[in-house]
Structure formats: C-alpha cells, structure tokens
C-alpha cells in the first residue's frame, strides 16, 4: 500500500518559494537561492533518515514507540525524586528547573557532538554518491527537534497538571528551540569539517561538551555560578542565554528578557553562517580523507 507524500498546496510549496528566490534579479539573492535549491533537492534523504532513526530506535522492543514518551518521563521522575532532595533545597520546583534546562542542553549537546561526527561517520556515502553534504547535520537537527518537542510537550502538560501554572509565555519555546537549533547546527558544521582533517578534535569536543553541563545554569541557579571571574566566559556562551530564557518562560512563567533574545538570535545566525562557510571551504577535501 503506497503512502502518499503529504503535499503543501502548490502556492506555498518549497519548490515555488525557491524558484522565486533563485530567479531574483539580485545576484546575491539568486546565488543564495541556488544554494538553497541545491540543498533542498536532497530533502528526501533527510526525511528518510529521520524516519529510519525513529522507527528503528526501539524496534523489536515490547514497548516500541512508548519509549519515546517513557524516556523524558523517567528523567523527570528521577529529577523529582532524587535530585530535589540532593541539590534543590533553595530552588522551588527544582524538578522543573532542572528538566527544562537539561532537555535544552542535551538537545544542543547531542546536535553538536553527533553532528560534528556526521561526516566521518557516513564515509561510505560521501565517497560513493554526489549529494549535498549539508543534509547530514540537518538530519541530526531534525531528529533532536522532534525529541525535544515531545519532551517539552510532556513537561508542559506536567506543569499544567501539577499546579505550578502554565502561562502563555511557553509559546516562546518554539522560537528558542529554533535559535538553539540554528546555533548548534552552526557549531556542528564548523567542527564536522575540521574533524575530517584532524580526528582528535572529535574527542576533545566530546569532553568539552561533557563538562559544559556544569558551566551552564542547568543544575544550579545562574547567580550561584562557581566563580565571579568566570563571568566573562558565561557572558559569551550563547547556551547560557538560551537556557536562562527557557527557565524564564517555562519555570518562572515570565516573558523572556529582550536583550537575551537579541543576543541569542544574533549568536545563532552568526554561528550558522561562519560554520557553513568553514564547512564549504573544507568540503572539497572530504572524499580523499574518508
């Protein structure tokens, strides 16, 4: 039985939009449009890979798709039962504080570490088929977005049920998620190219991201950061801004800080552009080194 692909109406289909962009009179816009079209061409690779990952992750298990829900729920439970007692005396609704931050951090961390290794990990395909290598990181981003969405929906429901109070500010979450995704993708592109040339970097990156957990306000409050002279480092780390914003809208129930949002957006855009530029520069040397 053939599955019909879902089609957006012609008027706003991706192909039409791309045609408009790449057909533009402006040289830069049209070149950009051509680039987008080139990547867009391989979108089926993304959908297939995402589908394969989701369907395949819990294959042959008894609970099957249930695990997608069980995973975040179990984490939240652990935070509630154990961590509240250990660390969260001063923080109200510690389980919520740590969950919201942890999911966001894990989202970024996974995209960065797995995305950085995506070129080396797919060496067969890179050396045998011609395709837009960008899709490899995009795949990771999509998978994590879906995972994060599920986690946040569960979290939001729990917030409502438990009586902590859900505000309309949670609607800022998608915006923050997109910013985090853009930023993480940029970092992933940046390193994925470098790692092909210097494999050691992958291990270094993994270690740094592991330690990073303790350098962002996930487990403790931002005010309680370890030492004052780390202030500078914190202030240039975009993850700080993203996670604090998540805390604001989900845990504190207040609107996000505008300066944080602006810094976050700019950081995301710049990182993505720089990451892609480095990636494209290094791309031509991939096939020989894999």
């Amino acid at each position: 039985m053939e599955r019909k692909p879902i089609k957006i109406s012609d008027k706003i289909s991706g192909d039409r939009i791309l045609e408009r962009i790449s057909g533009s009179k402006n040289k830069y816009i049209s070149r950009f449009g051509n680039y987008l079209e080139y990547v867009w061409q391989y979108r089926a690779m993304v959908t297939t890979a995402v589908e394969k990952d989701f369907k395949g992750r819990f294959k042959y298990t008894a609970l099957g798709y249930g695990w997608h829900l069980l995973n975040p729920l179990t984490h939240i439970l652990i935070y509630y039962l154990i961590f509240t007692a250990l660390l969260g005396r001063d923080i109200p609704n510690y389980w919520l504080y740590i969950s919201s931050g942890m999911f966001a951090f894990s989202f970024c961390s996974t995209i960065i570490t797995q995305g950085a290794g995506s070129i080396v990990g797919n060496s067969r395909m890179i050396t045998k088929i011609a395709f837009a290598r960008e899709v490899l990181v995009i795949t990771k981003v999509c998978i994590q977005l879906i995972t994060l969405t599920i986690s946040y929906i569960i979290l939001a429901l729990l917030v409502g049920i438990s009586g902590v109070g859900l505000t309309w500010n949670v609607l800022w979450l998608p915006v923050i998620m997109i910013m985090m995704a853009t930023f993480s993708a940029g970092v992933a592109y940046l390193f994925s190219g470098i790692i092909v040339y210097y494999r050691d970097i992958q291990n270094a990156l993994n270690i740094v991201m592991g330690c990073m957990l303790f350098m962002v306000p996930v487990i403790y409050l931002a005010e309680n950061r370890s030492s004052p002279f780390m202030d500078f480092i914190w202030s240039i780390n975009p993850l700080y801004y993203y996670i604090e914003t998540v805390h604001n809208v989900l845990w504190a129930g207040i609107p996000p800080d505008w300066s944080f949002m602006i810094i976050g957006a700019v950081a995301a855009a710049v990182t993505l552009i720089v990451g892609l530029l480095v990636f494209k520069k290094l791309e031509h040397g991939f096939a020989e080194r894999l």
């Binding site: 053939e2 061409q41 391989y42 979108r43 089926a44 690779m45 297939t48 394969k52 395949g56 067969r124 395909m125 045998k128 088929i129 395709f131």
Partner: peptide
C-alpha cells in the same frame, strides 16, 4: 559507482526507488 549505495535494506523496493530518485 557502487551497487546498492544509498539503499535502505529495511525499506521496500518502491521506497528505495523514491530515495534514489530524490538523490
């Protein structure tokens, strides 16, 4: 350049045609 590159063994032939075509 190599047979079976880009194919997903778990999916059906039809789906694989789709994948290959999109590539």
């Amino acid at each position: 350049l190599e047979l079976g590159m880009g194919f997903e063994p778990e999916l059906t032939g039809r789906d694989n045609i789709r994948i290959k075509c999109s590539m």
